[in-house]
Design a binder for these strands. Structure first.
Lengths: 262, 262
DNA sequence: TCAATAGTGTCTCTCAGACAATATGAG
DNA sequence: CTCATATTGTCTGAGAGACACTATTGA
């Protein structure tokens, strides 16, 4: 048997890989790898931006609200794991077009049990589908989320409210999120607000088509300092949206429908 | 001994954690976690943007050029690992202000040996310090890097050149990079180009102070479609730079020195 | 005094934002 | 016809970019 040095530095790449797979390797400590998914949608009725949260039934952080997510396995990328876990936990089918990687959180101690590193994703889902929460499924809700004029992020579940301060990164209010999920949500909302003008992928949450007013409402919830004129969106975002030219019904002048360009 | 269900769902959080640490847990497969660092700097003489590459001495990808980086351990975050590995491999001390997280790469098979997930960082370093490459240290070089008018990314090491096409994501030319490092570099340069106008952190590569001409040269290498007037930077980037008012020597009118605001 | 280099002033063009005007449908 | 609602047109101010002009030094 030839030695390690021979295979690493003198053999061919093929010989090396064959040797590598047959050898034992010192086991360095490895982290568990998870994904967490910030799933955003808007409710058609209220036009409010919503965020999917799940109530934890077990320790740690029992009874706290958390983002959906789970473990990544070795035959998939983190984006595939994100899509798979979302489907498993909520029944919702996402595609690579609906999700984008947000950030990887790795601060030691972020999970009180053991070493867990998590890659967070941001997902866009049309029209808040109703969520099943049977006995063994975890309780899942659509929480409303918006940024207020003080630049804080406000979450609401029913009458309960939680505020994330973007300066101090502190959570206050009626409930606390599990793990470092408040930081993840803060980063998600902040990134969305920054990108409204040049990569308005968020509009996917409005479904295939939407009115200018609906788009403006969404933008306003992410950044209450934007222009107060919904109509101006057809100028400022002309490169990103196109008219589908169907009209909806209702009181008042019918609004035109637009869609996000490919 | 009480059972798993009791500790997960009925005990207090403290009891749960104590039980958790004393118990055996099914070992799911875990990935190795690494960091890769895209370290950018500019050479004072040539004013060219440079990228730090290391030549691999062992399989896999023996003799290919690669980004510096290494394994993350359980008592540090990925950013700490990035700073530590950079110091170990190059002697360069970075701080959290000099680095930013780029993306986490996790596509199965990206490392031919085993399951390796890597979080890539982007680092800014002033004035291309000279690199030691002794016997046991890996060979390290500053490769020049810029984006050409065809929107390709061009790397050069001496007379050898490699081109990364940002449409097809193919590498052509005299050398190939190890692993998926061409994709990492492409993402780094693309992100920098997009952020020149609102978060010009890249200017850190110019050191504490710089002239408008130097700043423009850097911007031009990242995006050759920018304004052709270096002087306009004092208008367009007035929010980000401030004059230090010292003047340099040389032929012609002395240029003012600016620095990146805090 | 000229060449070389750098910074400043000015003009133009584009575009974001506010507001007024117009379009469309319900009752 | 009038009200409610939504889109379109117009005006204005700010700012990016091009270019010419001025400033500062060495030779």
């Amino acid at each position: 048997m030839k030695d390690k040095h021979y295979y690493e530095q003198q053999a061919t790449e093929e010989e090396f890989l064959e040797w590598y797979k047959q050898s034992d390797h010192p086991q360095y400590e490895k982290p568990s790898l998870t994904v967490d998914n910030v799933i955003l949608s808007v409710d058609e009725e209220s036009q409010s931006l919503h965020l999917l949260l799940i109530k934890r039934k077990a320790h740690p952080f029992k009874d706290h609200w958390a983002l959906p997510g789970g473990f990544v396995s070795s035959d998939e990328s983190t984006s595939e794991a994100c899509i798979r876990e979302t489907a498993e936990e909520t029944g919702v089918k996402l595609t690579t077009d609906n999700i984008e990687q947000l950030y990887t959180f790795s601060k030691p101690g972020r999970d009180p049990r053991t070493w867990v590193v998590s890659t967070a994703y941001l997902s866009f889902l049309p029209q808040c589908p109703t969520l099943e929460h049977g006995d063994d499924a975890k309780e899942a809700v659509w929480a409303t989320v918006h940024r207020n004029k003080e630049n804080q992020i406000v979450l609401q579940i029913g009458a309960k409210q939680s505020i994330i301060d973007t300066v101090t990164h502190e959570q206050t209010g009626d409930f606390q999120l599990a793990f470092d999920h408040a930081k993840i949500i803060e980063m998600a909302i902040t990134r969305l607000g920054n990108k409204l003008n040049y990569e308005p992928k968020v509009l996917q949450v409005l479904g295939y088509s939407f009115t200018l007013k609906e788009a403006w409402n969404l933008f306003y919830q992410l950044d209450p300092t934007i222009s107060s004129d919904p109509g101006n969106l057809s100028k400022t975002h002309a490169d990103f949206i196109e008219q589908v030219d169907y009209r909806s019904e209702g009181r008042g002048r019918p609004s035109r429908l637009y869609r996000l360009k490919d």
